[in-house]
């Protein structure tokens, strides 16, 4: 159960980082990232029940980045379950300041069911994203700059991943975008499918 904090990591995609090598050397970054570049998805973003993602009217489209969520247990730093997740955000080009407004809107982290997993099986198959039934994106953990064991080691070098915490293992730099009215499916051979849809946000 997610009783702790939900962490994610950006710039953990080899292909994305290869395209940013010039930018990494320039302002405002000045140097390539050393430690994993983490962010936090607060609990208002969680959607664990298959409910639709509310998209505010001012966002014509959002980034829908399919990834894998690891849930930690009582053995420090050891994930006990995995699920598919869709990390939704307002597209943003800069990684300089924390993207709170862009990443932390209500419902911007739908997740599938957590199940026991096998690391080899997770790595072997691709993560597929379908929009309205059409496959629009595929990527695999072979693209990760830090594979899962290295990522956990480098994060826990400076902070604890405790029981009830979640770690999203990375986002594809070429993740697709989606709009209100669309149905999204995320598939992986070793994990339960995640299905959600994007609806216009209606405020009470």
């Amino acid at each position: 159960m997610i009783v702790g904090s939900v962490y994610g990591v950006v710039l953990n995609d080899r292909e994305q980082n290869a395209g940013m090598m010039d930018a990494f050397g320039q302002k405002p970054y000045a140097a390539p990232p050393k430690a994993p570049v983490l962010y936090i998805k607060p609990h208002n973003t969680l959607r664990l029940d298959g409910a639709a993602v509310p998209v505010p009217g001012e966002l014509p489209e959002v980034e829908a980045a399919a990834t894998i969520a690891l849930l930690f247990g009582d053995q420090l730093g050891v994930p006990v379950a995995a699920a598919l997740a869709l990390d939704v955000c307002e597209p943003h080009a800069s990684y300089y300041r924390p993207a709170i407004r862009q990443r932390c809107r209500d419902g911007f982290l739908p997740m599938g069911s957590f199940v026991a997993y096998d690391l080899v099986a997770l790595t072997k198959s691709e993560i597929l994203t379908l929009i309205d039934g059409v496959q629009v994106h595929r990527w695999s953990l072979e693209r990760l700059v830090r594979a899962i064991p290295d990522l956990i080691a480098d994060v826990t070098a400076f902070m604890t991943l405790a029981d009830g915490d979640v770690l999203l293992i990375g986002l594809a730099g070429d993740a697709p975008r989606a709009r209100v009215g669309q149905r999204i499916e995320v598939r992986h051979a070793a994990l339960p499918q995640l299905v959600t849809s994007f609806e216009q946000e209606v405020l009470a």
Binding site: V37, L38, Y96
Partner: peptide
């Protein structure tokens, strides 16, 4: 010492146990 210019202030600076 741990400041980096990615999602700064980064978690290694501000989110240690």
């Amino acid at each position: 010492e741990y400041l980096e210019n990615y999602y700064r202030p980064n978690l290694r600076v501000k989110n240690r146990d």
